[in-house]
Design a protein around this nucleic acid. Sequence first.
DNA 1: TTAAATGCAAAGTATTTGCATGCGA
DNA 2: TCGCATGCAAATACTTTGCATTTAA
Lengths: 168, 168
Amino acid sequence: MIAPDSGVQGFADYLARAGLKSTRQRERIVRAFFAAGRHTSAEELYHQIRVQEPCIGLVTVYRTLKLLRQAGLATERAFGDGYARFDPTPADLTHHHLICTRCGMVQEFQDKDLRVLGRKVARSLRFTITEHKLELYGLCRDCGRAERDRPQSNSRTARFGSRGEARP
Amino acid sequence: MIAPDSGVQGFADYLARAGLKSTRQRERIVRAFFAAGRHTSAEELYHQIRVQEPCIGLVTVYRTLKLLRQAGLATERAFGDGYARFDPTPADLTHHHLICTRCGMVQEFQDKDLRVLGRKVARSLRFTITEHKLELYGLCRDCGRAERDRPQSNSRTARFGSRGEARP
DNA sequence: TTAAATGCAAAGTATTTGCATGCGA
DNA sequence: TCGCATGCAAATACTTTGCATTTAA
């Protein structure tokens, strides 16, 4: 995981290197992004910042997130609920997710062996990896139990149905 | 990989079980879906079918893909180009991707060790897996070589920029 | 017969762009 | 000063929904 301050600093460096300007809005957005940490959508970020900074546009949030991607500091993810989510790019590039298709819970995990294997596969296929995304979909512990008690319902239909239903 | 016919049959079974109707359109769409095989978008499917069946609506393609998802026969994916892609759900649920962020190429791979590890992780976290998605982003062999010859360009910006640019 | 399916048009929704204005270097 | 950044509104583009009509069971 990236330390918030090093992320903010890294973005400042990127702007300077690219000849772009450092603005109050960008600083707020980037700070909020690294503080929020995980699976943040543009809209969520926007509302968080609005509390302290009412005069900010959703557009600017989108544009800043795009810059963060270009700087290599943010990774875009799609969990299937219609929103793009952004994570600070972790230093070791291993940042995986278990996503419950019933309640929408997203749990992170890391696994060293998995990372090693991913590298092995990439090497054998002559692929230079810049990002990993391992997403395991299924039922979390609680939902798995609930489902076993009520086996006639169809767990697969919970997700992907209408947009945004599974937001935390 | 699912055999096309068994997929078509499986969908027919699903419709019967759910008390839904089997129509000419649904049969065409499902057949085309299992024949196309991989990473198919609704639009692609729609245009393929239109050649033989001009009187079909894109809406019906979307609705049928939704049914396929509910039947557990299709898996939705998002590679970051703005389109939802659909794959026949493979029997062993291991169906991974290497995605080149420069030319947009998508290469599949399977790895037995990876599958075993994924299961191990899920078990230790009490998670019941229904789908895997491992996506490795980076540079394919050719683009990696090209990038090494021209190191000043930024490979990260190639993808995710505007929508649809990386369609095959 | 009857409930479900279709297709068109229209709406919805996340994201991007055009443009006049604002502001950092 | 000068050019990048901002924010609003409008435009995009993928996907879904309303509704009248058609069709499978």
